[in-house]
Design a protein around this nucleic acid. Structure first.
Lengths: 185, 185
DNA sequence: TTAGTATTGTCCTTAAGGTTAAATAAGATT
DNA sequence: AATCTTATTTAACCTTAAGGACAATACTAA
């Protein structure tokens, strides 16, 4: 369903930007639920251009470096809004390699699985701590309609998600530890 | 990293099965964190065969219908175990269309976003209820190493995930409702 | 002057997923 | 007994998504 199309359209709708800027955006807040390499972005921008959904002006940085600054067209804005307001069915649950490993975990030595779990936990906790630090910026929920609401909302969502993942890992870890104790008897 | 390869190898390692059986497995517990269409499975099986990681025997159903029953080879089992025990860095967060919409939600009328949120909530709650029903089967945590541990673990994980998603949706809904009330004044 | 950042792009491979086709089997119905 | 439906089984074909590798040039600040 070409979702990248709408991610880009949405970003360019906020403010004019270059392909490089878009690329950077995917490395900031968006990274918690969307990403794309520049090798996807540039071809997609070209496509949007062909479809008349965006247009660009060339700006010169320094002496010669040409930047293509993209702006959304009226057609593009409409197209984006139609997508934005669409009520869709749930997507299939995301693929998750670690869950796949856990599904087959009985084939490992408990101590090996324990190590994997601890490594995951460590990484997830660090990630959550980072999200929490970002979250501190918000003294209160920014009002819906304000610039900050989107950022706040997805950040809050990412925190819930990570916290839930950690809960799950802890549960698994408990079970493995119990097993190891059992064995020692 | 050809994760489908390992998903299939893991399944076939449990018990011999046909492509069709594998296909069905992806529609059951696995569906909470992995899936694949048969149009991916058959080519992958052929590849695994070429690599000597699986082999098959033909069984006849009825008079003529040939079933290819796949079994993992020793080489395949080793390959699978190496993957299984690998400690990997976190994957990038999964793409999520609804989060993307939320990120841009300020561009919608609050009432429109409210409808979207309520629809998502409805669907997620139904899904969680289904997971909870399945979860009732387990009186207690099955011991690690037992057949059921994998099933239990990923089911528990799916419950945490859905519950967290619902929490997030509720938080968003609160914010939008507050905004609507504010406006009415 | 050199290292790092900015900027735009192509090419190639694999992964993913949808559509269609085609044949047989098994069970239910008329 | 004939027929209808649903499940089983394998497979080709096509499109999009994703991500890594390669390439080239320009600007900025230490």
């Amino acid at each position: 369903m070409r979702t990248l199309k709408y991610a880009i359209l949405g970003l360019v709708n906020r403010r004019s930007m270059t392909g490089y800027d878009i690329s950077k955006e995917f490395g900031e807040e968006l990274i918690n639920f969307w990403s794309a390499k520049h090798s996807q972005i540039y071809p997609e921008l070209k496509k949007l251009l062909d479809e008349g959904l965006v247009e660009y002006k060339i700006e010169i940085t320094g002496d010669v470096l040409e930047k293509k600054v993209y702006t959304v067209t009226e057609k593009g804005r409409k197209d984006f809004l139609v997508w934005l307001e669409k009520d869709e069915k749930l997507e299939p649950p995301p693929k998750d390699q670690f869950r796949l490993r856990s599904y087959f975990s009985q084939l490992m030595e408990p101590s090996v699985y324990q190590k994997l779990l601890e490594s995951q936990l460590d990484q997830r906790r660090k990630k959550l701590a980072k999200l929490n630090r970002l979250f501190l910026q918000y003294q209160q929920v920014p009002p819906f309609g304000s610039d900050k609401f989107g950022d706040y909302s997805v950040l809050a969502g990412a925190r819930f998600r990570e916290a839930a993942y950690i809960e799950w890992l802890e549960l698994c870890l408990e079970a493995v530890k119990a097993e190891i104790k059992e064995k020692e008897k």
